[in-house]
Amino acid sequence: MAFAVEPAISDLKSDYDRDGWCKIPHRFDDETVGLLRERIDSICGRRRPEVVYEKDGKTVRAVHGCHAFDDICAALVRHPQLVTLAEALLGGPVYVYQFKVNLKQAHEGAAWPWHQDFAFWREEDGMPRPDAVNIAVPLDDVHEGNGPLVVIPGSHTLGLLDLPAMTGEDEKNGWLQHVSADLTYTVTGARADSLAREHGKVLITGRAGSLHAFHPSIVHSSSNNLSADRRALLLITYNAVGNAPTNPTRPEFLVERDSTATTPGGDGRLRLVPDVSPSDG
């Protein structure tokens, strides 16, 4: 299915530039989702540096950099429609800056507080500008009860908000605090409430395999998973080739060092179909 039809691309870019997020009118089919879920579940069962746990030390919270060692994930980041979409939204060649799957296990998955991704990428890695885009692919059906992503439309235009004064102790916590429930860089609840009153907020729900794009500076969060349904959200961050970080010190599975443009490549195991599910909101 082609995103290459110019009116469709221009509409998506218009929505993205205005709101800081957009819904893509395609999704990965059920077989593709099943294959991706199978690979991620297998990775979650291994003790690897890329696997992050909740505070209990046993419940998987996230896995990172899977495209570097799993062939299906590697094929996914090169999917022609995803690369085309990222290039259209950013206006030029892109590479994969980050790959991760955030998991909220049934009844156990902890919230992500209000934050902006670009705060981490600029402050920790030295990314010059927010010229990157997150492509989100849920591997499970996402509904209001299992901790969906919540975004505040238009908040990406406000710059970085509520950056803390860092101390030596903060620096010792290292990269694990950037992927835990106790994030280093957050937007205060009062600020988020004020922004939500002014701009509204959108719950990003939908069936497994659906596609959304969101801006690195958009203010977003997600709640605890209080339901019996897991919520696994796969996220590919494409960065503009000319926007590579200047001081990447975090592990390579969090920050890709090679900024060579991603070459699109098809894989018959990864199939897109039209998404006719209801709109978010």
Results as ranks from 00 to 15, higher is better:
V101P: 00
H212I: 11
A2W: 09
L235T: 02
L234T: 01
A165D: 14
F214E: 02
H115L: 08
A181C: 07
A106E: 07
T237L: 08
R18M: 09
R46N: 11
G91L: 11
D267E: 10
A106N: 06
I236F: 05
L103I: 14
F28Q: 03
Q98L: 15
Y95F: 15
E31G: 14
L12P: 01
M1S: 13
I24M: 12
V150D: 02
R231M: 07
E38S: 15
E256V: 02
P128V: 09
F3S: 00
H107I: 08
I204N: 00
R48K: 13
L160M: 15
N102Y: 08
G20E: 02
L254D: 00
V255K: 00
F28K: 01
A119F: 02
L161T: 03
E54L: 09
A4R: 14
G45E: 10
G20F: 01
R61T: 02
L35W: 05
V83A: 08
L89T: 00
H215R: 03
R231V: 00
M166D: 14
V241Y: 06
D41N: 14
P153F: 04
D71L: 09
I152C: 05
L161V: 10
R78Y: 08
L176M: 14
D182T: 12
R230W: 06
G242A: 11
W175I: 10
G189V: 08
C22S: 07
V202C: 06
I204T: 05
P278A: 13
S217L: 11
V101R: 01
T237A: 10
R129E: 12
G200Q: 11
R48T: 10
E50S: 11
A88K: 01
P148Y: 05
W21Y: 15
A228E: 13
T188Q: 10
L139P: 00
G91R: 11
A119D: 07
L103V: 13
S42Q: 11
I24G: 00
L233S: 03
L158K: 07
L90D: 02
L36Q: 01
A4G: 11
N225V: 04
W112C: 01
L149F: 08
A228K: 14
L85T: 02
V187L: 04
K201W: 05
H212C: 09
D71P: 04
G159T: 09
V142H: 03
N224A: 12
S210Q: 08
A192F: 00
N247H: 14
R230N: 08
T188I: 07
L254K: 01
I43F: 01
K58F: 10
L149N: 00
N146I: 02
Q116C: 06
S222Y: 03
W21F: 15
R37N: 12
S279M: 13
F28H: 03
A240E: 03
Y238L: 03
G168L: 13
E144L: 15
F120V: 09
P138E: 05
T59K: 08
H156F: 05
L35H: 09
D17T: 11
K104N: 10
A190H: 09
P113R: 06
L234Y: 04
E31T: 12
